[in-house]
Write a protein that binds this DNA or RNA. Structure first.
Length: 512
RNA sequence: GAUUCUGUAGCUCAGCCGGUAGAGCAUUACACUUUUAAUGUAAGGGUCCUGGGUUCGAGUCCCAGCAGGAUCACCA
């Protein structure tokens, strides 16, 4: 087993044995009680010194500065880092100096997790620190932790930046890169903020099936699996839309779900095979109401996160303050191409695409062609939050037809920083219209569009019982988090982004 | 899937025209009882991603593969 351990790993295993020989359990079972945290001490010690005389904290050793008979070290807990001061004569009050000379100085390493008791003080150089009086090893680390050093100005040295290392061993990334931890704390704050808003609005948080026999509610290639007992294929959901609408039929007037969806498609810096979408549906509302609700929702998220509606993303500042600009899709295309496509047929649209240098193929219907023009020529221009409204009916099979304009539906997408982050409708609740739209999808499928929607007969049955007029929306939580944390890659906002498995290396390493 | 870049010590990276592998941090030893990228002295540590090929000789050149990044394609 030792053949492929590094020198440092061997050494730490030896230390493990030496600890046991001294009667010290490197992995003790008993609870270690703490009464403070790094952030708490730093924030409150100065104005409440009396309460920091008998402190117990626990955390991971991040660095050690050995001064001989005294040491400074930095401990990291869930709230941050704090310096500790370990002095030989304080942790070894009697004759026996083993705890300091052997255990602390030789057997404990950077990366080990320790429990500490002591009193808080301020050093000569002004750093609030814990003067340690008792020390207990809580967990021995057997792998050397990559060391990232940071100077006073916050500049870091030898930061571990290799994406493969960081994503495969996210646990290490989280330990050594504080900004990574920060991103994930913000992700949770974003979700909490939204959840609070939705709860306050009286919506009900629900859970709907992830395993579906008909992968509906969106157009995408699904992951397929097999249920043994029922002997049927099942699909991981690509959306939960049709289930949430069934609940509206069932009489709930507002429902939401933070849903993991799965799509068996390409991966890049904005796509991961599993991702999180918030969908919510509110009865008796339309897409105009939904736009107003959405802009207030996002304004509040930005405020909760940063105390302002202005968020810096790359070099630009995006202002989430409501209201947002609204522009119809036809007007958006006219604005950026100079072409009015509002009355064009499929052939004319195909001509426009060729003229604009947009790739087309025969499986594309009218709706798809318009979407290609918008995606290719317009989408990127909408940096500040903008609602693109009134989409062609062909590309929106679950959306109610526009109340005034023939050929359009009541749909909007919210564009921010040139990317779509939300998609919403006045929901189609006419069961006969819905059946015809599904049948149109079937025809697209026959024409070669492998992402056209399947017909869900049970969903149609539900609509036939009657669904109140409803507006619904899907918000991409990963992309929203990317925006609000200024991250360009979806991998930076997912703890464990999908990676090709590292079969060979693990097979060898895990042998012993 | 296409193009392109990258893969060397635990980590970050050098390595020239092909000639027995280098630095900083980390590690080990010694010194130092308020340091903070602590410091000083010394030492150890390598499957140069994998497999072929060319060559007297390959980390370096060629081919294939693996893994990752970027761009594009795909993904309403």
């Amino acid at each position: 087993m030792s053949a492929h351990l590094s020198e440092q790993e061997e050494l730490r295993r030896q230390k493990l044995n030496e600890l046991r020989n001294l009667g010290i359990d490197p992995y003790p079972a008993d609870e270690f009680k703490t009464n403070a945290s790094a952030a708490d001490i730093k924030a409150n010690y100065e104005r409440d010194k009396l309460n920091y005389k008998d402190i117990s904290i626990a955390g991971r050793i991040m660095s050690i500065r050995d001064m001989g008979k005294a040491c400074f070290a930095v401990i990291q807990d869930a709230t941050g880092r704090i310096q500790i001061y370990v002095r030989k004569d304080d942790i070894c009050q009697g004759e026996d100096k083993t705890l300091y000379d052997t255990v602390w100085k030789k057997l404990i390493d950077i990366g080990d997790i320790v429990g500490l008791q002591g009193f808080v003080f301020t050093t000569k150089t002004g750093e609030i620190s814990l003067h340690v009086t008792t020390l207990k090893l809580l967990s021995k680390s057997l792998r050397p932790l990559p060391i990232v050093k940071t100077d006073e100005s916050g500049k870091s040295f030898d930061e571990v930046s290799d994406p493969e290392f960081r994503f495969r061993q996210r646990y290490v990334d989280l330990i050594i890169n504080p900004h990574v931890r920060e991103t994930f704390l913000k992700r949770t704050q974003i979700i909490n903020s939204i959840r609070t808003t939705l709860n306050n609005a009286g919506l009900l948080e629900v859970e709907t099936p992830i395993l579906q026999s008909i992968p509906g509610g969106a157009a995408a290639r699904p992951f397929i699996t097999h249920h043994n007992a029922l002997n049927i294929p099942l699909y991981l959901r690509i959306a939960n839309e049709l289930y949430l609408k069934r609940l509206i039929v069932g009489g709930f007037e507002g429902v939401y779900e933070f849903a993991k969806d799965f799509r068996n498609e390409g991966m890049d810096r904005t796509h991961n095979p599993e991702f999180t979408v918030l969908e919510f549906y509110v009865a008796y509302k339309d897409y105009n109401w939904m736009m107003s609700f959405t802009e207030r929702l996002l304004e509040k998220v930005a405020n909760d996160l940063y105390g302002t509606t202005e968020v810096k993303i790359g070099d630009t500042i995006i202002d989430f303050k409501a209201p947002y600009k609204r522009i119809s899709m036809y007007d958006a295309i006219k604005e950026h191409t100079g072409i009015d496509i509002s009355s064009m047929n499929e052939e004319e649209l195909r001509g426009v695409c060729r003229q604009l240098g947009i790739h087309v193929d025969n499986s594309m219907g009218k709706g798809k062609l318009i979407d290609e023009i918008f995606g290719g020529k317009c989408e990127g221009h909408y940096v500040q939050p903008t609602f693109i409204i009134d989409y062609p009916v062909e590309m929106s099979p679950l959306t109610k037809k526009h109340r005034r304009v023939e050929g359009l539906v009541e749909r909007f997408e919210l564009m921010v920083n040139g990317k779509e982050i939300a998609n919403a409708y006045s929901e189609l609740n006419d069961p006969i219209d819905q059946r015809e739209r599904f049948e149109d999808q079937l025809r697209l499928q026959e024409r070669g569009d492998d992402e056209a929607m399947f017909i869900d007969h049970d969903f149609l049955r539900a609509l036939e019982y009657g669904m109140p007029p409803t507006s619904g929306i899907g918000i991409g939580i990963d992309r929203l988090t990317m925006l609000l944390t200024n991250n360009a890659s979806i991998q930076e906002v997912l703890f464990f982004p999908q990676m090709r498995p590292e079969i060979k290396q693990m097979g060898q390493e895990e042998q012993p």
